[in-house]
């Protein structure tokens, strides 16, 4: 029988327990089980497209499926910056409620217009760490050389008095070791896989009042989607649903694993209080939110819609 082969690309290490890789792999397995003449071939670790090429390739149908940080496409759809915006998502339960909100409807509309469709939602949490002092309130970042994950975080941290150095997450370890960096912010997954516990003295875990959450959905090219028959679409939807649930349970477990690994290595672990969180939000409102509202059509409405989610 004629098998339709879909190519799925992502930037994360393959077969080494990275949850995002497992999520895509799981979808491939489920779709194969469904036996609807559909097969997903996974290309991990940027082995087909580089991280930043994936969106462009997807919407042209050069690539069929991808799991990517949606903010990577914010150069083409500035609205996507809202999915990597400080403080819009507070914790994993909040992320779940956000998925069914008007805010996400607005984002998914832009994704659809761009030429793609969401198969599975995924919100990844992240942490802050420093080799100088624990990062809690905004004053604690003053004067630190900081690597932040995402432009909106760079704006907020700079407004709080940090000095920003941008580099890929793979360079954080060396940069901290040699003293180019004092502090870094990235996903919990990267904190573990890049062994940053060897270089920092204090970790700020996401906890109840996390600042950093990033939307990293599994997407399918709309062109490709329209070319599939109904049974195949159903199989993909079902697989996406399962992968989404799998990720949601794993995401919190990763945070826990990070805390354990860092504590085992003698790193102090703290979390932000509600006051810290609110103080950061005030700074974000004057920096990242304001820039976003000024530069993006519909920007203020997006922020309001996100903040409206309880």
């Amino acid at each position: 029988s004629a098998q339709t082969v879909l190519r799925a690309s992502h930037q994360f290490p393959g077969g080494q327990g990275d949850v995002r890789d497992e999520m895509v792999q799981m979808m491939a397995d489920k779709v194969a089980e469904a036996d609807v003449g559909l097969e997903i071939e996974v290309y991990p670790g940027q082995s087909l497209f580089k991280a930043k090429e994936q969106w462009g390739a997807l919407v042209r149908g050069r690539l069929d499926i991808t799991a990517l940080p949606l903010d990577y496409a914010s150069g083409r759809h500035p609205e996507f910056s809202a999915t990597l915006m400080p403080g819009l998502v507070r914790n994993h339960e909040h992320a779940q409620r956000l998925n069914d909100s008007e805010f996400m409807d607005m984002i998914k509309e832009v994704i659809q217009e761009g030429g793609a469709r969401v198969l599975a939602d995924a919100w990844l949490s992240g942490a802050f760490a420093s080799s100088q002092n624990c990062i809690t309130s905004p004053e604690t970042v003053e004067g630190q050389n900081f690597r932040a994950a995402g432009p909106a975080f760079e704006q907020m941290l700079e407004a709080a008095g940090a000095s920003i150095a941008s580099m890929p997450s793979s360079e954080i370890y060396t940069a901290m070791q040699t003293g180019v960096l004092d502090a870094a912010n990235t996903s919990s997954m990267s904190f573990i896989s890049y062994r940053l516990y060897e270089q920092v003295d204090c970790l700020t875990e996401p906890g109840e009042h996390a600042l950093w959450f990033m939307y990293e959905p599994v997407l399918i090219s709309e062109q490709v989607w329209q070319g599939l028959d109904e049974a195949q679409q159903q199989a993909l939807k079902a697989a996406g649903q399962e992968a989404e649930e799998f990720f949601a349970t794993e995401a919190a477990a990763i945070d826990q694993q990070m805390v354990e690994v860092f504590e085992e290595n003698g790193v102090e672990v703290v979390s932000m209080s509600e006051e810290d969180y609110n103080a950061w939000l005030e700074i974000a409102k004057q920096s990242s939110y304001k820039n976003f509202a000024d530069n993006v059509e519909n920007g203020q409405a997006l922020i309001d819609a996100a903040l409206a989610v309880e």
């Binding site: 990577y72 496409a73 914010s74 150069g75 083409r76 910056s81 432009p151 760079e154 530069n295």
Partner: peptide
Amino acid sequence: HGGWTTGTVWNPPL
């Protein structure tokens, strides 16, 4: 035509 930018803090047109 797309008004594409680079998506960074500087965010210049591409």
